[in-house]
Design a binder for these strands. Structure first.
Lengths: 195, 195
DNA sequence: CGCGACGTTGATTTGCCTCAACGATTGTGG
DNA sequence: CCACAATCGTTGAGGCAAATCAACGTCGCG
């Protein structure tokens, strides 16, 4: 189990003694998620919060017409979960699967609660984590409401250049809220402009 | 200062002793925000997290074409802030103003930090609060990506019937991500269908 | 009263979608 | 190691949901 990245991630917001680190790590479970393999499926309860050590995942919902809507990507150092389901421990609507073969660490809801009790500092850690997610989510909302598709794409490539290396183009289109065909046309236009 | 509602709000997630309640309340400040009065303006640092006791507020950004985009409403019992600015204490992009004459309570960032130190339970309280906001924000993203304007409007009226009593129609249109004209047409269509 | 904010309605335009066809890769079973 | 299917991106023609623009009626308020 490669724990460097996650300890580093935690250390950005709270500092732990060696004993606390040990407790934390003992509550984690490691897993590999292969490319295209489902890690969480719609209708299941999201038992674990997932930390990506290596590789890349995507989280998405499927609407009544069978269309995928990518809600989030997760790269090394990022957390991903169906927050609604994870918090309520009721069946959720999110699917999570590997974009490439990946290494992840799991913290179950039960273990998270244990962690809060044994090392209360983690309340702060997760508060900050969730605060940052909220800021990002709201920013994305604003972008979707106020920018045209082409601008959203340019923002995206600037903000998350590394995702482009992992995610197929149609997943990026889905994340941006447009069809793959239309993203292709945007890219064509931009490439022509460039030259 | 009417503190019943906010103590009730806190009690939903953590329980406080009388002494802790006293500390908490001593860190709050009360204020009235009149209809159409700005409570927070773009470019300012969001010093306070705002709890609505009575009335209603809206939070919105203004894009480069001068178009308002309503990010959130806040009714009695709800919190509102420019999360990005509040957390980082850097100038933000959100505007907040009264939809009607309102009573609010303010918790400044400094006092919040004090609160975390003096009553660590509040770390948990705000974690849960932010978790719920995040779930709502993500759900809204999904809706915007997967539903047509009419469906979004129907969802909205079902989920937030009370907002309709306070917010003018063009603010609701903005929240839904459509123009006021188009919302008017949707409502016309629905009314005709109804009868 | 008269002005500004608000909602409505219609004509026209447009950003993005749908559908369909096609090449280039990838991967998989025989 | 090859044939074949599946996945992925591209391109074009046509269509639709929602935007834009403009005109108008109503209401509340200084």
């Amino acid at each position: 189990m490669n724990t460097d990245l996650i300890l580093q991630n935690v250390a950005r917001h709270i500092s732990l003694t060696e004993a606390e680190k040990k407790i934390f790590l003992s509550l984690l479970q490691s897993k590999t998620v292969k490319r295209r393999q489902s890690h969480l499926a719609e209708g299941e309860v999201c038992v674990d919060s997932t930390f990506v050590v290596q590789g890349a995942l995507k989280g998405f919902t499927v609407d009544k017409n069978g269309i995928e809507h990518v809600i989030s990507f997760a790269l090394p150092g990022w957390w991903i979960a169906d927050m609604y389901s994870f918090i309520s421990q009721k069946p959720g609507t999110l699917n999570i699967e590997g974009l490439v073969d990946s290494e992840v660490l799991l913290l179950s809801r039960t273990n998270q609660q244990k962690l809060y009790e044994e090392v209360p500092k983690f309340e702060r850690f997760y508060r900050i984590l969730v605060e940052n997610s909220l800021v990002a989510s709201q920013q994305r909302l604003v972008n979707n409401l106020s920018l045209a598709a082409e601008e959203r794409y340019l923002h995206f490539t600037e903000k998350y250049p590394s995702i482009i290396e992992y995610a197929p183009q149609h997943s990026i289109a889905s994340y941006l809220g447009i069809t793959p065909e239309f993203l292709s046309k945007i890219r064509g236009r931009l490439a022509r402009k460039q030259s």
